[in-house]
């Protein structure tokens, strides 16, 4: 079984984001990490490989710095490392096309990824890639097992959770799971260092990136929060609750 895991390198969730000249200054990011949900996808992929045999193909589309994350994935057991040069594309539909083409090139049977990446928090990649692959997609899963030709997975439902199954090429987008993530060890790190990263481009993949009809105008710091508002007396609770919903959008 060929298991593809899609990984994205993002600023560590604790890192400061500095903006200069209307753009996030990527050079000022103190630490880049594998996006947290991707770590669960990777762990589940490794477990699936250990149970069913096969190879784990770690794929990322991003700038050169993201190769480091592939090496990290190799340190815990990824077999093949694929880096797709992002060629400056930021339109997620383009990224999905590149990822899907790589998945086909490496003949993956199943694709695991995070439910969303911790930078844009969009969540388009899993279902978008599934669409291009004409594959089934289950999002927000916490575990996936392969038995008797079926993938069995858990996803949340209105009443709690549900166990669902799929067959054939499937894409699973992971939420934070219950599985414990493995640590690398020195042996893994030494082997990872020797592992070749296969670098490919859109032309290797025969993907034509059409012009995007979205344009990034600017990235700015979030608007300053309004000064604190203080209310005397419990009769104001309902006012505050509606502010929490309408001003703050947090409930």
């Amino acid at each position: 079984m060929n298991i593809a895991v899609l990984l994205k390198q993002v600023p560590d969730t604790t890192a400061k984001i500095i903006i200069s000249g209307g753009k996030v200054d990527e050079n000022s990011v103190s630490k880049w990490s594998m996006s947290p949900y991707d770590e669960y996808a990777l762990e589940s992929g490794l477990q699936m490989k250990e149970k069913n045999g096969g190879a784990l193909i770690a794929i990322t589309c991003g700038p050169d710095r993201s190769k480091k994350m592939l090496t990290d994935a190799a340190a815990v057991g990824a077999d093949t490392l694929v880096h797709i040069s992002d060629e400056g594309v930021s339109d997620s539909t383009h990224v999905q096309q590149l990822l899907a083409a790589a998945i086909m090139k490496y003949e993956a049977d199943v694709v695991l990824c995070g439910k969303q990446a911790a930078d844009t928090n969009a969540g388009s990649t899993g279902p978008g890639v599934a669409e291009i692959l004409e594959a089934t997609c289950v999002t927000l899963v916490s575990e996936v097992n392969y038995t008797d030709g079926k993938y069995i997975t858990m996803r949340p439902s209105n009443t709690g959770s549900e166990k669902v199954s799929t067959q054939g090429t499937s894409v699973f987008a992971f939420d934070k799971g219950t599985v414990e993530l493995r640590r690398p060890n020195v042996r893994g790190i030494m082997m990872a260092k020797k592992k070749n990263i296969e670098s490919i481009t859109s032309s290797d993949l025969d993907v034509n990136l059409n012009n995007s009809n979205i344009n990034l105008d600017s990235q700015m710091p979030p608007p300053e929060k309004a000064a604190g508002q203080k209310f005397e007396g419990a009769e104001h609770v309902s006012t505050v609750v509606s502010k929490l919903r309408n001003e703050a959008n947090v409930i």
């Binding site: 996030v24 009809n213 979205i214 600017s218 700015m220 710091p221 979030p222 608007p223």
Partner: peptide
């Protein structure tokens, strides 16, 4: 919002999306 609200991105959409 991007980066969990640490920045806000402005985009112009010129076609279907």
């Amino acid at each position: 919002p991007i980066y969990s609200g640490k920045a806000v991105e402005t985009l112009t959409v010129s076609g279907d999306a």
